[in-house]
Amino acid sequence: MSDRVKKTSRHLTCEHDGDPATAVCGECGKPLCEDHERTLTDPLFSQYENDYTHLLLGIVGFVVVPAVLLGVVDASLFADVERQLFDQTIGLHTGLLLTGVLTGFGGLLATWFQSGDQKTSARVLTRNPPERALCEECYQSTSLRRLLSVALVGLGALLILAGPILVVQAGNGGLLALSGLGAIVYYLRHDAVLYTLGPSNSDT
């Protein structure tokens, strides 16, 4: 028995260079080594985890922030601060309130629930797209969803940043709500891709 036979018999080997395979393509099943494996965080692939983050965010944004702004903190306090900073009132109170509500709304939209046999066994879940190993060809055919993901992340980031900047430049506190919109875009980016492309696993 030669050494070569022993070696090839121990492992699945990569189709490209014969190295031991560390993964297979999640689409077509080809064996892949580390050098020839492409990783994709696939928004079209549903995987749910026990995770309260989005729900907490929703509660904070939707309930806690309005409660604090409307109940605990006096609106005149904001007016004082605004006058000191900008020499006029710009409605930052409303802007913060809107941002909080929008962010919270985004968090609630991104929260998943799964009911069980009993009401107490209901789960709060977060959908996290898993990382998948794909071969080069299968990876190439995912370009549209990758493009969409990147665009949505960019849009979200742009909106979040644009909020405070526009508030300062235009002197309108209500524009802070743009950050809230950005947060919604960011939280729902995977769902947006999925909704755009449909649940089938091919871009076309």
Partner: peptide, 29 residues
């Protein structure tokens, strides 16, 4: 449970009013 009670979300409820569960049951689920 995954089949009898698939995960639901507010967004999914809002967008799949016509019974299309595509958001929850995407590829691989």
């Amino acid at each position: 449970r995954d089949r009898v009670n698939p995960p639901v979300s507010l967004l999914e409820r809002l967008t799949s009013a016509n019974g299309d569960r595509s958001l929850a049951l995407a590829s691989g689920y």
